[in-house]
Write a protein that binds this DNA or RNA. Sequence first.
DNA 1: CCGCTCATGTAACTGGTTACATGATTTA
DNA 2: TAAATCATGTAACCAGTTACATGAGCGG
Lengths: 190, 190
Amino acid sequence: MPDLTDLECTVLGVVWKRAPCTAYAIMREFAGSHSTYYRGSAGAIYPVVSRLAERGVLEATKEFHGRRPRQTYRLTAKGTDALRSWLTPPLPDCAVTITLDPLRTRSFFLALLSPDQRVRFTLDAEARLREQLAINIEERDRYLAAGDPYSALATEGAIDSLHARIGWMVRARRRLGELAAEAQENGEPS
Amino acid sequence: MPDLTDLECTVLGVVWKRAPCTAYAIMREFAGSHSTYYRGSAGAIYPVVSRLAERGVLEATKEFHGRRPRQTYRLTAKGTDALRSWLTPPLPDCAVTITLDPLRTRSFFLALLSPDQRVRFTLDAEARLREQLAINIEERDRYLAAGDPYSALATEGAIDSLHARIGWMVRARRRLGELAAEAQENGEPS
DNA sequence: CCGCTCATGTAACTGGTTACATGATTTA
DNA sequence: TAAATCATGTAACCAGTTACATGAGCGG
């Protein structure tokens, strides 16, 4: 029952919240969420779901919708245990590592741009992050309205991260200005 | 010259900073950095570097260290252009999307834990994030001492994100306590 | 001279993606 | 009745990982 991946456990979690639900519904949940890493492609979800059923953490039921059959899934007791132990501290190292930020990856090399291109970089980034922020605030409010304070809390994590990245970009703009001024004083090339 | 991946451009960036340098040195740079997503495995770096050389963005030189030959690389003019255009706004959507946080992924399902397990979750997460914070502050200071304020600025992004996640976990602990109290008032099961 | 680091790779695997195929049911 | 959505899959691909193999140079 152990060594389930994060994707597998997330699927488990979605089934736990939505049960009974189809693989298709899980797929839509992933595809529709902004705070999820996975894109929710059929090629990922269907194999995962049937693997989980094989493992005995999900239980499949054949339902009929009209005369068309469909598989719905729910957690088994074993599945609930697996999901719970995924959440139970101590958390694995990989769960608390630093997050990947493509903006940060790029920032390492900002010295290559001209001073005003650097400013434009931070302005563009800030504006785009604010768009994301609006989307995520909306998502959080939807969760609150739907009576799911836990998902709202999770989404709040995304909101906080976005605030932090926006603040970082604002500070970066100021710092980059200072660095450019220093460089000019010393007569360095751009 | 376009459609280079983030990994490829990051490699380009490292060569730009470190040139002339070997593929091995690039690999070590990736493996040693905490703020990088990629693990810097030989199986990734070597193919990327030779692909970049083939594309004409990197130029290979055969050097001799003793009587042992080794390839060192530097950017071509085309490579500098490619790196610059990777950084130049408007940034692609993928660069400003929300970051993946395994802690957040888990938080969606915290309702499954008992109230005190939830508290333990946030305490554990907070402690581990603070460790990461210390590591990244050290890394930033090393960059500052090494006279690389741009990398320091980038690392500051990681520090800010960690602060945000820590604050989020602290607030989560309070909110979860309130939620548990409400639930008990309403006589709901844990 | 032993073991560590430098240095260069390759092969098998993994976990996801895109894109496609198929067909029933619902809605405009 | 046409188009969209529900529903279930599969096949080809892709980027990066682990693990291995090999050998030169260097420090103790």
